[in-house]
Amino acid sequence: MAQMSMKSKKVKNEAVVSTTQLTKMQQLLRDKWLYFLLIPGALYFILFKYLPMWGVLIAFQDYSPFRGFWESEWVGAEHFLNFFQNPDFFRLLRNTLILALYDLVFFFPAPIIVALLLNELRRQYFKRTIQTLVYVPHFMSWVIIASITYIFLTTSGGAINAAVEFFTGEKINFLSNPDYFRPMIIAQVIWKETGWGTVIFLAALASVSAEQYEAAIMDGAGRFRRMWHVTLPALRSTIVILLILRLGNFLDQGFQQIFLMTNSLNRSVADVFDTYVYFVGITQGMFSYSTAVGLFKAIVGIILIYGADYLAKKMGQTGLF
């Protein structure tokens, strides 16, 4: 064991040495074809991502579209102050954070579990049929899902509530009781996106060779130990990357879903940044203010992404880079 790691260290050192022996110019020349391959993608990022990035500056302006960027008045941090001093700021922040956490804890593992379960199926036709079925809801719009949720959960004749009443003798106000709002939102997300989420994990699992399983079986590993020692490690880097990237959009919640499931009785827990920004930014057309809110969310995302990447590397994972 120790010998092995010694050896790999030696190899690494050699590689380092051989790289440092080349001048930068020589390295560039050696990798000319790699740089050539990079060009189209780099062009894309420059043109469509970095060229428009001056747009974030309007968060510090009183941007008037008609007057344009250069003629608009600069107001410094006014919009940020307005946002932070908004009496609802902390309620929005709390609701957004809690939902994001719920999402991470309950939704994020769901596709991994389903992928593991699917991976254990031996009948190919059954496996493929299930895969296809669970992926259907990804294509349903939130409007339809909200409507179907209402049909099943309503206290006046909803199927699920009828069942609840049958067993417990009481109806549950899933739709109006604030306690059920977050579980309901997460359940909808799990229902809609789990099947779609498994695709990437199944693709990663395709790279696990039958030999690895055979070897594990030879070692006498049972079903669950194989899952734990062979299948899961194969998914590890994918899981880490998806987790880190998810953190970048930590504060994003689907506006439409939340908007459709919110009502007068559960709004205290339902209002999030995205529903707020929709009204201010789109309905009222207050660009600078909504850009400021977006910038705030982005900064939180950047901190989380890089923080998580740092942690992942600390813990010996490959991380993003």
């Binding site: 409507s147 209402y150 309503t154 206290t155 006046s156 106000n173 109006s176 009785l265």
Partner: peptide, 12 residues
């Protein structure tokens, strides 16, 4: 009035 009015789907 229907007792679930606060949550009823406007489309229905």
């Amino acid at each position: 009035v229907n007792d679930d009015f606060a949550v009823m789907d406007p489309a229905k």
